[in-house]
Amino acid sequence: MSAERERRHADLERGLTYAIGGAIWLWLCFRWLNSWLGGVVVGPTEPLVPQSFATATESLGATLGAVGDGVPLVATGFDLVGWAVGMVGFASQYGPQLAVAAWLTVVLTVISTLVGLVVAVPLAAARVYGRVTKYVAFVYIELIRGTPLVAQLFLLYYGAPFLSKFIREVPGVGQGIVPAQAVWIAIIGFVINSSAYQAEYIRGSVESVDPGQLTAARAVGLDKLGGIRYVVLPQALRYAIPSWTNELVYLIKYSSLAMFITVPEIFTQADSIGSETFAYTNAYVLAAGFYLVLVVTASYGMSKVEAEVAIPGVGSSDAGR
């Protein structure tokens, strides 16, 4: 009886999540396509619903917020309800701007994670199997992991002017769909940061594979490289999935720090909306909503990947920052 109810609740919750998530992603994809095509349907940052809708919800929100004023608790309750209603109008008006900015956040995150992985694999290999390189990799990893990402970004942007200059002079940068130099510096910063973390995750998962596996691979006649490639890595990469999820989530959130180096990602956009409207809380909460959608989607996607490649007995261990 109670188990039956619990299952129904879970189904309902999942259904709602899919419906809302699906709607948001449909809308996001529409906004992206619309903006790439130069605003064929509506202007790239122009809302789909008329301004009057936003005005109406905002005044409705204000009215609701005024209900019960003077009565403690009731007043607070209606304040919250009124704020939430007003927030709908606010989101309808400023959502499109953040949607366009969200694309940049996605690009920043995905490129940085992937390139970070490419850098991380040799780093991890050096850390596990290297002689001298072991110490080089160790120092790099600990240095990066022990210092704030803001400091790394600032150092690259303000402390290394030659880097900005060099990137700016690469033909095509800042033109068309190729992002401006600040974005490239942000990507470089995220790659450096992420590679250090990913190297540690990979090292951890390689070391969590039972040494007997490599022995058995050698006993069948595989050489060390073959044993690592066909036996150790396929297992280690599966062990690493939960940490990758964490890494992706981490980068999505910390890509907001690119705001400090003028990259027009979600939070930069939200901040300028805030100072334009003075509705700071609304602007930041809306930004938080966008990050949350990206984070939840990333976790969900990675859990699908994990389930897809899951093998009984090759367990996943929780790890990550």
């Binding site: 596996q213 022995t215 058995a216 006993a219 036996v231 297992q235």
Partner: peptide, 11 residues
């Protein structure tokens, strides 16, 4: 070679 603890490739 056959091992005491099998060492089958887990994946």
């Amino acid at each position: 070679m056959v091992f005491q603890d099998f060492n089958l490739f887990a994946h």
